[in-house]
Design a protein around this nucleic acid. Structure first.
Lengths: 336, 336
DNA sequence: GTGAAAGCGCTAACAG
DNA sequence: CTGTTAGCGCTTTCAC
């Protein structure tokens, strides 16, 4: 910057002013400065700038697994929104580990991230106000965020999502409906299971415990769960799958068992993704409003950074059912 | 830090020394300092630290599209490796736009990223040494990286990958083989097409221009390309698809046309991903060694950051063919 | 083995 | 409208 000042024949303060655009600098001087900047290939040192201003232009984004298409898209949307607004994003991957997540949060703090958007990996009680400090760094939680968490939370209505899918399955006449779902300790998983149960209750359907399979939100867990389901003496005629990764596992198990969808078994799941429509038949799915979730999370974190001191807000977004071809009527066992 | 020093009853220099572990500080003092840090919830300000030391612990990672499973996995691997080694990653998404990419590179520089790993969005000539400055920031390119680029490059052997897939298709007896590929200006796309052509040449197969469809590496482009292919008077019996996104497009078009794989048409593609094995039949694919690519890129960038001044290195990794069930013998038109 | 002090590159308040 | 100057929080010689 000193060099630029010298090259442009002005003081460094003038350079700083021209660069931030704030102060009143005469157009010709400004042009001269900009030319010098260009010529020298100067780039403002945002560490020094941030240090001085007491704030960085960094936003943290911590997800549990980028590889999950839901998070992939969330990362994409948040990154794009942040970029457009002049923020850079520091990415952290907690790998579903609350301890790692806490470490990442500390890291974000150490980098002076102005705020971070977190997709919590843990259970609601892990986020009690006394459990961790974020210092001046603001926090908003997305996705696996219980209302009890002491900061802004943005979620899809998970119960409604499950009900949407379950009702659709029930409407097709199924009664032996299984569910492959996530770890009950986790807020999203609990909600999704609750929605499934509600849908069953409403039509007076008893949920057979043998048809409920909870595991981690992972391909392998779902694959195993599905195999177990298929091995049952009285297997289900439909499966409600609680997320995209588990859906992959279920589809793998089905493919391995040479079962066809929806002739042998109906499938509906939460989470849409590009591949869902390339399947034959295309998969019926509940779509999460990822773009809206990302936008809301970003809006919230920026508001908090700018000093919004109101009490934690909860934003609940609606899911939508995307009916494609993986749910059909119950196959009749034999000609009557 | 001043507070911590006061709380621990030492000077700030001692605190700094204890924290970095470098200098010799008596164990009891160190413990006292650490206790104070803990008690006050202190976290080192890495902006100030970076400013002073003249280097940050940030590594930039610029990809053209996180949503592409190849990049998703690359981001995952790089993030994990970086984290483990004490680096944080600043994520940039160029959205296939070289201008945006240049801007992101400038941004990384402004954040004092010690180095950045770039998946180039542009053509080789866009990276001539005079075209951009990275200042003291180191650069390594992965994936779409031509040997002519003036920095370390790590790539899969794209020609070999295409040959692997093409040979497999040819070995199944196909002669009317189409390819849905990327923009020829882009290095990867050109290489992949060259590999396809080589495989054809080797067996003296003429490549019908009508069967070559180049578009952007996007679902929609591939979908349209595949539709056009199917509408041909003399449609192909097999399609070689140059990347995963295009594969989705092709599969969508096939599903829409109610064509079944591999009975009506054989398919092989570059890029493996979790869904490939959940398909029926599972998709035959050439797998990129993403983990090795990420590891190599990370190793290179760290070496450069640490001062390795040797001339640009090129690392070429081998692809592997994953034979599943989407390539079959040519269907016989009618009983002879 | 520990403390005092200089200064990293920048911003902002203030004087000119 | 432009230049001078005092730190932001930390690291790192250099005395002690």
């Amino acid at each position: 910057m000193k060099d630029v000042a010298k090259a442009a024949g002005v003081s460094i303060a003038t350079v700083s002013a021209s660069l931030s655009g704030a102060a009143f600098v005469s157009p010709e001087l400004k042009a001269r400065v900009l030319a010098a900047v260009e010529r020298l290939g100067y780039e403002r040192n945002s560490m020094a700038s941030g240090l001085k201003r007491g704030r960085s232009s960094l936003i943290g984004l911590v997800v549990s697994d980028v590889t999950n298409p839901f998070f992939t898209e969330l990362v994409d949307e948040v990154q794009t929104a942040a970029s457009a607004a002049g923020w850079s994003v520091l990415l952290g991957i907690s790998n579903h580990d609350p301890a790692r997540e806490a470490e990442l949060l500390r890291l974000m703090r150490s980098h002076q991230a102005a705020g971070t958007i977190l997709c919590p990996a843990g259970a609601p009680e892990d986020y009690a106000p006394d459990r961790f400090t974020t210092g001046r760094m603001k926090l908003v939680a997305v996705d696996n965020a219980a209302p009890s968490m002491p900061f802004d939370t943005v979620v899809m209505d998970n119960r409604a999502a499950s009900r949407l899918a379950s009702d659709h399955i029930i409407a097709a006449g199924h009664r032996r409906i299984a569910t492959v779902t996530g770890p009950p300790r986790q807020y999203v998983a609990a909600e999704r299971f609750a929605g499934f149960r509600e849908a069953a209750d409403r039509v007076g359907l008893a949920v057979d415990p043998a048809l409920v399979r909870a595991g981690q939100f992972r391909i392998e867990d779902a694959e195993a769960a599905c195999e177990a389901l298929l091995a049952l003496a009285d297997p289900p005629t439909a499966i409600f799958v609680a997320n995209n990764l588990m859906l992959i596992g279920v589809m793998r198990a089905l493919a391995a068992a040479r079962l066809s969808v929806p002739d042998d078994l109906s499938i509906a799941s939460i989470d849409d993704f590009p591949w869902a429509s390339a399947f034959r038949p295309a998969l019926t799915v509940v779509r999460q409003p990822i773009d809206a979730m990302a936008a809301a999370a970003f809006e919230r974190i920026v508001a908090r950074i700018e000093g919004d001191g109101s009490s934690p807000e909860r934003i609940v977004l609606a899911p939508t059912l995307v009916v494609r071809g993986s749910v059909a009527a119950v196959p009749v066992p034999a000609p009557a």
